[in-house]
Design a protein around this nucleic acid. Structure first.
Lengths: 344, 344
DNA sequence: TGTTAGCACTCGATTATTGTGAGTGCTAAT
DNA sequence: ATTAGCACTCACAATAATCGAGTGCTAACA
């Protein structure tokens, strides 16, 4: 879809204006607000064309026009350019992170905090996950009688707890023994390859111990498959200030989105080409509850490996420019701090 | 405050009616709905008295009356009697718990689920806490370089993770050694008594190890002091259906309450005489955001020791009868299952 | 041929007007 | 002490009147 320069400019101004005011934009106000040197009548003609092309709609006959989803998409793809954040804001953010980079949890919630504050929308942050692939060490701790806790430590130094009930009582000494067996195995191969046959080949185990290992491994595998990534969200109430969310039903939708952590996590980690900033506008979202929202997300990495994701949920009438700039910068910051935090 | 039998009866009917309908109750409808054998005019006189006594107010002249907070308080203290739940519902709940009592986390979120479903209000559940007092065993796990994870296990078999960065690198062997030192200490005394002087008296430590222990102990103590109890909440959107919450500001308040986990946790664990079911109506709540809500809470125990709390947040026009009955029964169930879960 | 001034028209939002009805308090009769 | 009767109140709903920012269309103009 190609538009001539003037149509493009007019569309841009309309979108910008509507994003700011949430009011339908009319030809008269438009020609006043930005002096393009064309009269309202001309603008009307152009607007009529843009409406025919699917970029604008009128809420009712004889009111101003508002942008369609297609218009936002066009804006995001063809018009907008991601600006660098202002120097002052950049240093502010940077300092904020320096104050919160001692532990992973606080870093994550601080990120969410900053995101929602800078954008005035709802922020969502996905913490790094512990999976089969990066599991380095397993420590089994006896809890009480036949319940044990398995602490899985990753290459990057993250930990995850898995609690299970076994068929026999496990004391501290036995727990240590079991840990050693599993860690011996982990020296040579990865957990997901640990089949029943391989367990039987492990030397120096009593039948009882062997039985326990046979119980433990499937639990471990299963728990590491599960997508239980922590999702931090902040600024839920930010959205309440926008006129499109004065409707209680919209708010319900929003709350449902934020509570479906599973869905949120899948959505945020799914790739979109190899874009760094991913923008989903209204019905471009698969999730039914998100049809009336836009969501902009990005990811952070460690050694080129995706560690987690973060983003912002807002109205389709979102300030795509600002949010993109913010995400872009936060992404850099996160990449920096995560590597400091996990590898150092 | 004593009311004669008839006033008491009338007040009761008004409150019941208002809880059901959220509409101001008038004398005519009242005399029809429940045949007390008295005419509207008489009821009007009685209502005028009740208004003078502070139990009723009129939203505006010449409308029906609605109960005041004082009326709810009177109702709760003097009129209402906690009923036993219906047999069918009891067995339903019991079965539900049986399906979810393998682990603590799921049991807690199931409780919240059931509570919100049975009451149609917002449910909050506080999971058991790990503190200084019940700490049985500490396992130190090397994460990466100088970062370690401390897993604290309680008498009851609960675990809590504490992550710290130390001044020296700690490998698996050193981690084990440090664990043994701390656990040796824990055999004789409790953690909060572990002073700097006592650490120096521990035998068989290299200076490096001693230094690490000196670093670790304050971290442990501090982390165990913190009230970081998990708070599960469900059914936030339940309240949206009640007419008093069509206002977006009320919803904001509610969300703020649920997000201030700290405050919520303090509030729920504070005692109220030795009542089993604790009812706070509107401005009886200290928290500013809760002034327009009522909250009913209870606690669950293990060996007479309070383990956690749970409750329901709703409008002051809350169905106090039903909620009390539900909490009462859930309390029994939780006590039962928690003891199975933790001690077995 | 593209642009613009002029004009009649549209329609949501705001304000004013008017009933309606469930409620009240007061008084007098039972 | 209770109640029927009655005039009065006032939020709420429905209807009408007004306003104004916007439109499309036509004709004149560069």
């Amino acid at each position: 879809m190609e538009l001539n320069a003037r149509k493009k400019k007019i569309l841009e101004v309309i979108i910008r204006d509507y994003i700011n005011t949430a009011e339908p934009v009319g030809s008269r106000t438009l020609s006043k607000r930005c002096n393009l040197g064309i009269s309202p009548a001309t603008i009307r003609n152009e607007m009529a064309d843009l409406e025919e092309l699917g970029f604008l709609v009128q809420p009712h006959t004889s009111s101003g026009r508002i942008p369609t989803q297609q218009a936002y998409r066009y804006y995001v793809d063809e018009i907008m350019e991601i600006q660098k954040l202002e120097k002052m804001i950049r240093t502010d953010i940077h300092r904020g992170f320096l104050d919160h980079n001692t532990e992973l949890g606080p870093t994550m919630s601080h990120t969410a905090q900053v995101l929602s504050q800078l954008t005035n929308y709802t922020a969502v942050v996905l913490a790094p996950r512990v999976t089969n692939f990066n599991c380095k060490h397993v420590q089994i701790v006896s809890l009480i009688k036949n319940r044990v806790l398995m602490v899985v430590v990753t290459q990057e130094g993250m930990a995850k707890n898995i609690e299970v009930t076994l068929s026999q009582e496990v004391d501290a000494i036995l727990a240590l023994k079991l840990s050693n067996v599993i860690n011996g195995f982990l020296k040579n191969t990865i957990l997901s390859d640990m089949s029943s046959e391989l367990i039987d080949q492990i030397q120096e185990m009593s039948p009882a111990e062997s039985k326990l290992i046979h119980e433990i491994i499937p639990h471990l595998k299963k728990a590491l498959m599960e997508d239980d990534s922590e999702v931090h969200s902040t600024g839920l109430t930010n959205l309440f200030n926008y006129p499109e969310f004065s409707d209680v039903n919209k708010i319900k939708q929003l709350i449902n989105i934020v509570q479906e952590k599973q869905v949120l996590s899948e959505m945020m980690t799914s790739k979109d080409g190899n874009r760094v900033i991913r923008i989903k506008i209204g019905s471009e979202n698969d999730n039914e509850n998100l049809k009336d929202f836009s969501i902009i997300t990005s990811t952070y990495e460690l050694d080129g490996e995706m560690m987690g994701a973060f983003g912002v949920i807002g109205p389709t009438r979102m300030n795509y420019d600002n949010v993109s700039s913010v995400l872009n910068y936060i992404r850099n910051e996160l990449n920096l701090h995560i590597s400091n935090l996990l590898m150092k």
